[in-house]
Each structure stands twice: as structure tokens, then as C-alpha cells.
């Protein structure tokens, strides 16, 4: 028996919004530790890794490890039927071929349930080694989303250049070129507004705008985003989900042919 409850459906809606543009379907691996998902986008350029810890749920029970392959378009249709404030419970029997989403209104007067067919998906799990990154940048998630949106008007690629002075995002194309520099904040009233840079070595890497923009769909989950970079390895874009877990996106760089 698997049962996981969150007191506000809005959290699950945001998690789904953060992955459904990159992935058509994905396997949710459930264990007593929580829910894990790892999947590559269709073109195998990026990887999504989601962790929702069992202690972050309002109720969590998982008697046997369970892998639930879900069509994210179908899941999205179902979650649209929930109000943000509804309690949402996901339930499945051991070895089941369906999962049930139950929504309960705050006043307990409306209860709905939606049963969704599960899919057998080819699981390909990639091992991600522990890495000491040359540069780790933390910045407001909204600011990162704004930069990715603005720069994607100028080119297909963004160059992220990080030194101890700051981080620079650049793009160029037919229109011309654009550069956005962010310095490390000296003092801020609110921690979530800070830009911080931990640098061992300066790094300059090029990434596809299209994927960066897709990652920023996770912005509503977190005030801050963390970018981890080293030369010639994938960028890690991490959003922490308060009290519940995190979503990490890995993006392969563009490299000289």
C-alpha cells in the first residue's frame, strides 16, 4: 500500500509544472524515504531529478517499493481538477496498474477522486557522481527566470561566465548582443534577495536558452536558485522545495566542435 498526502494541492501542481514541459512521462519511484524521479528530456540533453522526502508529506506510507510510470499530460489534467487549497492524497495498492488522486476541500464537504492508469516505462537511471564544482552561484529564482527570458530574445545560447567579481550572462544573434552582470550582494535585508558566489576557479560555459527557460518553470517552488558549474561538465540548476525536497536540472554544455 502506498499513500502520500499533502495539505495543499498547490505544491504538487507546482512540481508538475516544473517538469511537464521537459518530460512527457516519468516514473515516480516510491519508497519509505519518499518519492524520487529521474528522467532525461526527449532529446537527452538535460536530466531532471526530483526528490520529495517522506517527512515533508502530511501523511506518508509506503509498505513496498513501488515504481509508478505516469503520463504527465494526464496527471496535469487531473491536477487541474484540484483547487490549490485542497488536500491531495495519492494512493496505490502494491503491484497496482492504477494510481488514485483524491482531493478534499478545506471544509471537507467536497471529495473527488481520479483514477489514472499507470504505464510501464523503460527506466534508464544515470549515476551522477559527487562533484566539487568550480563555481556555485545562488541568486533569487525570479531574477534567474527574468535573465533567461530576456536573453532568449537575442540568441539560442547563453554564455554564463563566473568570476569572483560576479556572474555574467551573455547572448548574441541577429539583433545584436546582450550582457547582464550580477555582482555578489554586499548586504541584503532578506536572505532570498542575496546573490552569493563561491568560486574555486573562474568558469565560462555555453548553454541552450530553451532548456534554461524550461528549468525556470520551477521558479514558483523556491525563492532562490543555485547554479553549479565546472569546465566541460553539465550545469546543475537546483531549486529547493521548502520542507519537502528539491528539484535539480542537469544540462549538458555546448562545446566547440
Amino acid at each position: 500500500m502506498f499513500e502520500a498526502r499533502l495539505n495543499a494541492a498547490t505544491t504538487l501542481k507546482k512540481v508538475l509544472d516544473a517538469i511537464k514541459d521537459l518530460l512527457n512521462e516519468a516514473t515516480f519511484d516510491c519508497s519509505d524515504a519518499g518519492i524520487q524521479l529521474q528522467a532525461m528530456d526527449n532529446s537527452h540533453v538535460s536530466l531532471v531529478s526530483l526528490t520529495l522526502r517522506s517527512d515533508g508529506f502530511d501523511k506518508f506510507r509506503c509498505d513496498r517499493n513501488l515504481s509508478m510510470g505516469m503520463n504527465l499530460g494526464s496527471m496535469s489534467k487531473i491536477l487541474k481538477c484540484a483547487n490549490n487549497e485542497d488536500t491531495v492524497t495519492m494512493k496505490a495498492q502494491d503491484n497496482a496498474d492504477t494510481v488514485t488522486f483524491m482531493f478534499e476541500s478545506q471544509n471537507h464537504e467536497k471529495v473527488s477522486d481520479y483514477e489514472m492508469k499507470l504505464m510501464n516505462l523503460d527506466q534508464e537511471h544515470l549515476g551522477i557522481p559527487e562533484t566539487d564544482y568550480s563555481c556555485v552561484v545562488r541568486m533569487p529564482a525570479m531574477e534567474f527566470a527574468r535573465i533567461c527570458r530576456d536573453l532568449s530574445q537575442f540568441g539560442e545560447s547563453v554564455i554564463i561566465c563566473c568570476t569572483k567579481e560576479g556572474v555574467k550572462f551573455s547572448a548574441s544573434g541577429d539583433v545584436g548582443s546582450a550582457n547582464i552582470k550580477l555582482a555578489q550582494t554586499s548586504s541584503v535585508d532578506k536572505e532570498e534577495e542575496a546573490v552569493t558566489i563561491e568560486m574555486q576557479e573562474p568558469v565560462s560555459l555555453t548553454f541552450a536558452c530553451r532548456y534554461l527557460n524550461a528549468f525556470t518553470k520551477a521558479t514558483p517552488l523556491s525563492n532562490q536558485v543555485q547554479l553549479s558549474m565546472s569546465a566541460d561538465v553539465p550545469l546543475v540548476v537546483e531549486y529547493r522545495i521548502p520542507d519537502l525536497g528539491h528539484i535539480r536540472y542537469y544540462l549538458a554544455p555546448k562545446i566547440e566542435e
Binding site: 537527452h44 537511471h125 549538458a252
Partner: peptide, 14 residues
């Protein structure tokens, strides 16, 4: 000329 690399070039199957 820049080439987009695949993520599987960096991380191997478990």
C-alpha cells in the same frame, strides 16, 4: 561552431 552535447556523455547508466 558549438555543438550541443548529450547528458549521457557525462553520466553513465547505473
Amino acid at each position: 561552431n558549438l555543438e550541443q552535447k548529450k547528458i549521457s556523455m557525462y553520466y553513465k547508466n547505473k
